[in-house]
Amino acid sequence: MSFIEVRNLKKSFGPLEVLKDLTFNVEKNDVLAIIGPSGSGKSTMLRSLIQLEEVEGGSIAVDGDHLVKDGFYAKPADSKKIIAKMGMVFQQFNLFPHLTVKQNLELAPKLVKKEQAKEYSDRSIELLEKVGLADKRDEFPSRLSGGQKQRVAIARALMMNPDILLFDEPTSALDPQLTKEVLQVMKKLAEEHMTMIVVTHEMEFASNVANRVIFMDKGLIVEEGNPQEVLKSPKELRTKQFLNY
């Protein structure tokens, strides 16, 4: 049994079919990069996994529990537990602007997990050190650079101890310098065997850090395999075109 099993996922926005019968697995400790042109359905697919989008057909199982089975969603109480195993990092960071960095990290452990103050306070400092931002703990997000914001967002997701992290184009809003500092943090997580799915346009990250790559186009998985296969010697014409071969 794979950690995440996706079967025949289907979704439309009105008449537009954005996901057409997607099937794939994610194993524990995988770093899966999803690449493809804009509008290929990558982000929608990722957002479906954590129920930010509702699908119309197919199944999603996480750690053996079905979030959706043949288009039918689990009861809210069950889906809440399934979603709690996942963390998400957004392109636009989505930090809470009215809370300091440290408060951003601590809000969910405090409210959702009802942790003791010492517990979440210790862990937030530890995670901020990990992403190199312990000195910014009392700043508001508006005082941070984009790269710093994204690193805070990663730390915030880690606060909930997820089994898998989903990244939705985490560096697309950043310049190359800031992209680098975010990718470094993600690489460190990969080295610590964090399971990750990363929707990205960073081919270097896909080839150096990911152990699997999926190329999507027009709501379909066109090609998948290890980075060597998909990025260095793609078989499908559309993959070749996208990668400029």
Partner: peptide, 18 residues
């Protein structure tokens, strides 16, 4: 208020009320 604020709250497991 950006819809990303609702989405971030949702994926962190906050209830509607929270």
């Amino acid at each position: 208020i950006d819809k990303g604020q609702y989405e971030a709250s949702q994926v962190l497991g906050l209830s509607k009320w929270q």
